[in-house]
Amino acid sequence: MWVAIAVGAVSCYALKLGGLSAPKAVLEDRRVQKVAELLPVALLAALIVTQTFSKQQELTIDPRAAGVGVAVIAVLLRAPFLVVVTLAAAAAALLRLIA
């Protein structure tokens, strides 16, 4: 775990420093900009669906789906971050309590 933490932290720092030090031409490159715009969206979308609909290597639908559904509604209603997260967790917990 510590190795992974170190690798992750060093890579994130290297990206920050690299951005401050890289030649302008690289960062102004259209392909670089496109990747940096779309990559975070893609990763977040992939993380959302895998952590909602999968358990290890199985696809499942369980109370987590309801929780994330509540989160989507809260975000659409422009709720603050902590409210989004709390409502989502509460919805999933409530559903488990009933089941």
Binding site: V7, G8, C12, K16, L27, E37, L47
Partner: peptide, 17 residues
């Protein structure tokens, strides 16, 4: 996890511009 974190951190590099 570390690889995913690094990929997500790529946007920080662009702020350098």
């Amino acid at each position: 996890g570390a690889a995913t974190a690094a990929l997500l951190g790529s946007r920080n590099a662009l702020y350098g511009l």
